[in-house]
Amino acid sequence: MPLSSRHLLGLQGVPKEDIELILDTAHTFREVLDRPIKKVPTLQGKTIVNLFYEDSTRTRISFELAEKRLSADTVNFSVSTSSVKKGESLKDTIKNVEAMKVDMIIIRHSAAGTPYYLTKICDSNIINAGDGIHEHPTQALLDLYSIKERFGKLKGLKVCIVGDISHSRVALSNIFGLKTMGVKVSVCGPATMIPKRIEELGVDVIYNIDEAIRENDILNVLRIQLERKAGEAFPSLREYAKYFGITKERLDKNGKNILILHPGPINRGVEISSEVADGSDQIILNQVTNGVAVRMAVLYLLGTLN
């Protein structure tokens, strides 16, 4: 069974079968990553462009490694070296890139909906590597993979996403993906960071972090963006850390061995303490490894579709 779409724009509306197929395929590639020679010839001859209109370290490297391990030819384009600085429109840039005969475009952009727009103006397979505060589907897929790896299942689990939900593409993709897979999802954060009417997506809203810890099997802790002006959405980092930060004391107090995910990069001492981040689990770094496998799976499934 192939995927039902030739693009991965987000997890909203992606059927359960597709997510299962990606996770199962990722499992195969995860094994490849443990081999001495971490390369398969699957996408030989395919050209993939990594079009990054926003800074990114791990997502870009993760995609690039995934592409290289599938033997694709890859080209990187980032905003600082592009003609965008000369005022070229997105459409012109895409048209030019496509004229050079590429098969797939991985796009990260600060504006929501940009990957969708690309599907209207070009024929390549489009993979969303994060669009504004909308979606970041491969991050959510690797979160799903990591949870499944630990629990052996997804259905019936309880996940709480903690932090600045309003400004998180990771949160939204996680909500869509987890809900599709039968996971009970809640969000937790200061009221100023919870988007309007999010309950209508079928998630519960919790304002008390202790309750979130007690009620859930997994916490997905989002990064607090330090570049956002402190005092705008919450009074101070100190207050955030005190009332929403995940510390060992807080976990112990609630007597819970809970799985902690974090999409990175971590602000140690703000949303999560070093002690928790570096705990015996090492799941957060495991997520990063799984990210390569999941992206290999997505690239493979889309790249061999046509």
Binding site: G113, D131, I133, H134, P195, K196, R197, L201
Partner: peptide
């Protein structure tokens, strides 16, 4: 417009 659609589409909301 701010509402469930702005939340789902990830577009900056205008209340």
């Amino acid at each position: 417009n701010e509402g469930v659609n702005s939340t789902m589409l990830g577009l900056p909301p205008l209340p």
